[in-house]
């Protein structure tokens, strides 16, 4: 009876995994198909894979440029968000100061700000500031969007570091900034990993703001997708090849750091 139970358990889990994975597999397979195979009315699992789509998006599509833009933006946004976010979370968790309440409640509410709300005003403001169509303009909006979540996630981690540890370091002659770098930072690694993944994910995946704020030189990978959707239809082979390139880093992250991702996802409600 117990073994039957376990069997049913695994059968359901496997079925669910198939449902989760199948659409992603379809994306990957289609990217390796020729135009003719894609437009075939019947779906085929086995075919001679071709690299033509990838070659096309790299050679004619300037995808190498978009890839570079995406990498620069995502890495810079992640690094800056983590630095500023940790500093701010540390101050919120450790100091009592005027404006602390406003700041902490402000970040909690800003956490859910819809990107669509930002689209129009950011486009207008960035134009007047002259940072439209620049990588730094996109980085700025991504850092701003990510900070509330990062601050709030790291706040929970810093709270759990015993204050005695810092006091001991202070008595040993560590200044406040050294206490932060030498004592606190190393203890925050799991929180920082989760924050880094979520920030990178947003910066790497984000489409609408990047699409509005960049031109063909500064375009990111997701925004370049629109190049393959025309009035006459979708260039499926190429768009799926670009899609695979976009999906790849998050896929790698998921398999390498699933634990940190789940920490980040559940941090808000479950414990913390």
């Amino acid at each position: 009876m117990r073994r039957l139970d376990a069997l049913v358990h695994y059968l359901i889990l496997t079925a669910l995994s198939v449902v989760c994975l199948l659409p992603v597999i379809v994306l990957a397979l289609t990217a390796f198909k020729t135009e003719r195979q894609i437009f075939d009315t019947s779906w085929s699992w086995f075919f001679m894979p071709t690299m033509d789509n990838f070659r096309a998006v790299i050679e004619d599509g300037h995808i190498d440029r978009y890839l570079k833009n995406s990498l620069v933006i995502s890495i810079a946004a992640t690094a800056i968000t983590l630095l500023f976010g940790t500093m701010c979370a540390y101050a919120l968790a450790r100091f009592r100061f005027l404006g602390r309440g406003t700041l902490s409640y402000g970040t909690l509410v800003l956490r859910t700000l819809p990107p669509a709300v930002l689209a129009v005003p950011v486009f207008v403001i960035w134009s007047t500031w002259g940072i439209n169509d620049t990588l730094s303009g996109v980085i700025l909006v991504y850092v701003a969007l990510n900070l509330p979540f990062t601050i709030w996630l790291l706040y929970g981690f810093i709270e759990q570091v015993p204050e005695e540890l810092e006091e001991a370091a202070a008595i040993d002659g560590c200044g406040p900034f050294r206490v932060f770098w030498v004592v606190i930072l190393p203890l925050l690694k799991p929180g920082l990993a989760a924050a880094a993944i979520f920030t990178f994910r947003l910066a790497w995946n984000e489409f609408i703001l990047s699409f509005i704020l960049t031109n063909r030189h500064t375009r990111t990978l997701p925004a370049s997708i629109s190049n393959y959707i025309t009035d006459t239809g979708v260039e499926w082979g190429k768009i799926m090849a670009a899609g695979v390139l976009i999906a790849l880093p998050p896929l790698v992250f998921t398999f390498v750091a699933a634990k940190q991702i789940i920490t980040g996802l559940t941090a808000g409600a479950v414990k913390g």
Partner: peptide, 13 residues
């Protein structure tokens, strides 16, 4: 890990 996948890949994908 597999269940996290659909949330991690780009909405555009």
């Amino acid at each position: 890990t597999i269940f996290v996948l659909p949330m991690m890949i780009a909405p555009i994908c």
